[in-house]
Amino acid sequence: MQLDPRRGALCVIQATATTSAGATELAAYSMPAAPYGTWAWQLSVLAAYLSDPQTAKQGPCIASLEAHLHKRATAAIPSPGAAYPFTPWHDPRVSCLLDIVISPADASGWPRTSLILMEQESAPGTCAWMRVERESNTVAFLARALREMRAEQERLADRARTAPCPGITELVQLAGKVIEWLQPLHAAAHKQRQAARAAAVRSRIHPPASPSPARDGSPRWWLS
């Protein structure tokens, strides 16, 4: 996709990935904000990357994220794919920013994530507005993705009622499919996180038994 950075509002995904080897990588990608460059649609795109078994198995990295974004260029929900060489936090053209930090999977099996969401008017004026919000872990990330998509579906449904249009109706149905996909994903991540936390608590309460010492003070498993 060819993107002229001089025109229109932009949606940007900025990602920082810590690889399994401990290296830190940074990249940013952009697309026109209309019509899919919003939190609701792009959070679901990132959720698909986080839930990919290969991401957890091989560890997150910019190369795999870039491949994920590029293969969605012709998908029902397109994603940012053009390299963005600027600083989005100081670019007034950016109306939607998803700034995500991804680290290797924890005990739950899900990659660790930290997300900052920014939304603002792309052409600030005297009454310009801006909001910044944050989600600090993957379960919260998926819950936010689900919440945003539900709100988007309701917004589209209201628009379909007031101004009936086949295109809007299709978007309502697409949002419903994304919600159906996100619900079990969030439930599974929540369950796995709770199980991992419970296991960690049990290990602190009942640590593995140490070998009992022999009479001379040596551990018994040293003796033949």
Rank of each mutant, 00 (worst) to 15 (best):
P124Y: 06
S95N: 05
P124A: 07
T113S: 07
R144M: 12
F141P: 07
L97Y: 00
P166T: 08
D158R: 15
T169I: 12
E180A: 15
P124K: 08
V172S: 04
M130P: 00
L185I: 06
D106V: 01
G176K: 03
R131C: 13
P184S: 06
L146A: 03
G109R: 04
R112V: 10
R159C: 01
L115N: 05
W129N: 12
L185E: 09
G109C: 07
G167C: 08
L185M: 14
G176Q: 05
R150K: 12
P124C: 09
K177W: 09
Q120S: 10
C127N: 14
R159A: 07
Q173R: 12
H186M: 13
V172H: 03
A105E: 09
A140H: 10
H186I: 04
P164Y: 00
Q153A: 01
V178K: 00
E180W: 12
I102L: 09
P166K: 12
E135P: 03
L115M: 10
A145P: 01
A188S: 15
T126W: 11
M118E: 08
P166L: 11
L115P: 05
D106F: 02
P184K: 05
E121L: 11
D106S: 05
P104Y: 00
M130I: 03
I116W: 11
S114E: 13
R144F: 06
Q153K: 05
P104C: 04
A145Q: 02
L185S: 05
S95G: 08
E133W: 09
G109F: 09
I168Y: 03
V178I: 14
S114Y: 11
A123C: 09
R131G: 10
P104V: 01
I102D: 03
S122W: 11
L146V: 02
R134G: 11
S136P: 02
D99W: 11
H186Q: 15
A160N: 03
E152S: 14
A151I: 06
R161C: 03
Q120F: 04
W129I: 07
E133K: 11
E119H: 06
I102H: 01
V178M: 02
L98K: 05
G176E: 06
R147P: 00
E135R: 13
P166H: 10
E133G: 13
A187Q: 15
A140E: 14
M130L: 07
D158K: 14
A107W: 01
T126A: 14
V139I: 06
A187E: 15
S108C: 07
W129S: 14
Q173S: 10
A157V: 02
Q183W: 08
T169R: 13
E133N: 13
R134W: 10
I168K: 02
E170M: 10
V132T: 13
I100H: 06
I102C: 05
E180L: 15
A140T: 11
R131D: 14
Q173P: 00
E148K: 04
P166G: 07
K177C: 13
P104S: 04
C96K: 04
Q120M: 06
D106M: 00
L182Y: 05
R134Y: 12
L171W: 01
T169G: 09
L98Q: 06
E152C: 14
A163W: 05
W110K: 03
L117P: 01
R112C: 09
L171T: 04
S122I: 03
A151N: 13
C96P: 09
P164L: 00
S95H: 02
S122M: 05
L174Q: 11
I100K: 08
E152K: 15
G125I: 07
P166Q: 11
R159G: 09
R150F: 03
G125S: 06
V172N: 04
A157L: 05
